[in-house]
Every structure is written in C-alpha cells, then in structure tokens.
Amino acid sequence: MSITPALTGFATGFSLILAIGAQNAFVLRQGLMKKHVFWLCLFCAASDAFLIAAGVAGFGALVEAMPSLPTVMALAGAAFLIIYGLMRFMAAWKGDYTMEIAGQSRGLWATLAIAAAFTWANPHVYLDTLGLIGAISTSYPDWPTRVTFGAGAVISSFVFFFSLGYGARFLAPVMQKPASWRVLDVIIGLVMWAIAAKLLLGVTNGTLH
C-alpha cells in the first residue's frame, strides 16, 4: 500500500494545528513550567485523534445536521477566551511569577479541564477535523486508503503536541526572569482576544471560517 495518503494526511493535519492558537499557547506555557506536559500533550493529541477518526468515518454531517452548533460553540469559546485572556493580562500587570519560575502550576485535573475548554469549545476544531479532514478523506474511495490518510493526520497531532510541550523546555533559561513571563502572558492574552474577536466576527457575519 502506498504511503502517499499517510503523508498527505500528516501534512494536512500538521498545517491545521501549526498556527499559534489558544490550545497551542497553553501547551507552550505548561511546557515552559515542565508540569503535566505528558498528560496534557496526550489529552490534546488524543482529542484530535478522536475528532479526526469521526471526520474520516463520515460524521462531518453532524455540523450540517445541527446548523446552530457552530454558533453556540463560537459564543462559548469566545467567552472562555476573553476571560482567560483577561487573566493573562492581569498576571502580566501584577508581575508575580514566583510560581512559574519555580515550576509550579495548577493540579493535573485543573490543567486538563482548561485544555478541554480550549479543545472542545473551539468550533474551528470541529470544522477542521470533522469538516475539512473528513471532506478530504472522501477523495480516497476505498476504506484502507482513507484510514491510512486519517492515521497520517492523527500521527501529525501527536508529533506536534509532544514536540511543542517538550520542546518548550529549551526556552526555560530565557524564562527565568519575571519580565520574560510578563511578555509571554501579554502575547498569550492578545492571541486569546484576537481569536475571540474572530469567533464573534464570524457569528456576526454568519460565517465561521
């Protein structure tokens, strides 16, 4: 069997998650603190795997069957991103990064709960996995080839998240100063609000792209 579908799936999946988004920024921040990195990366990659498998299996029709779903998810996601972005701005304003520099963070379950919100409250995740990847997979008429394509996309998620989470520690020496954490939090806050604005704009215009 040709590996071309797997390579295509890998490239497609990787390109979709490569952009700096809310989920990626959170994984990066946890990676810098070296806390719960394995379980966080596993959760994010496994969530992607589930959605990609659903998309390849043909459940992308769910979005078409429930036209209000993208709007509801967009509003919920925007609200969460606005609040989390505000938290990052407040942290940057206070400038107390004793815990971060010491490598302390929230507990495992609290960390995974935040990751779940970033993952499952983001309508673009469904559009990318159930919609786009699911649609591309239909170009492969036989199931073995289609599954190979989906497997490539799933592998890309695992490679990306674990590379991001564990690769972040190479920046740790730079993050030993409160000023560095302050800059990071301001950037993350801006990213969160930019994504929230894009979601709300999509709701206003009736398009979620």
Results as ranks from 00 to 15, higher is better:
118 F>S: 04
35 K>L: 10
26 F>W: 13
43 F>C: 05
139 S>G: 04
96 D>G: 01
203 V>S: 03
55 G>L: 01
26 F>A: 02
154 V>W: 12
143 W>G: 06
113 A>R: 12
97 Y>I: 02
197 A>F: 06
91 A>Q: 12
147 V>I: 09
105 S>C: 10
88 R>M: 15
137 S>I: 00
33 M>C: 07
156 S>D: 10
56 V>P: 04
190 L>C: 06
99 M>A: 13
91 A>N: 14
199 L>N: 02
103 G>A: 15
92 A>S: 13
119 T>D: 10
189 G>P: 05
73 M>L: 13
201 L>Y: 03
5 P>L: 14
91 A>Y: 00
34 K>T: 12
11 A>L: 15
202 G>P: 12
126 Y>A: 02
40 L>S: 01
208 L>H: 08
29 R>V: 05
16 L>D: 04
203 V>M: 09
89 F>D: 07
18 L>T: 04
92 A>R: 08
123 P>G: 06
108 L>A: 06
174 V>S: 08
99 M>T: 13
190 L>Q: 03
6 A>P: 09
82 I>A: 14
45 A>E: 02
113 A>V: 14
160 F>A: 07
53 A>L: 15
64 E>Y: 08
80 F>P: 01
175 M>Q: 13
99 M>E: 11
143 W>M: 09
181 W>L: 14
201 L>M: 08
118 F>Q: 07
42 L>G: 03
16 L>A: 08
34 K>Y: 15
193 W>T: 03
138 T>V: 04
170 F>R: 09
71 T>D: 08
84 Y>R: 00
86 L>A: 14
4 T>E: 08
133 I>H: 13
75 L>N: 04
112 L>V: 09
159 V>Y: 01
159 V>H: 07
93 W>G: 00
53 A>K: 07
76 A>C: 10
51 L>N: 01
47 S>W: 02
131 G>S: 12
106 R>V: 12
48 D>Q: 14
20 I>P: 02
108 L>S: 01
100 E>A: 15
101 I>C: 09
51 L>E: 03
36 H>M: 11
100 E>I: 03
144 P>V: 00
52 I>N: 00
209 H>E: 12
6 A>K: 11
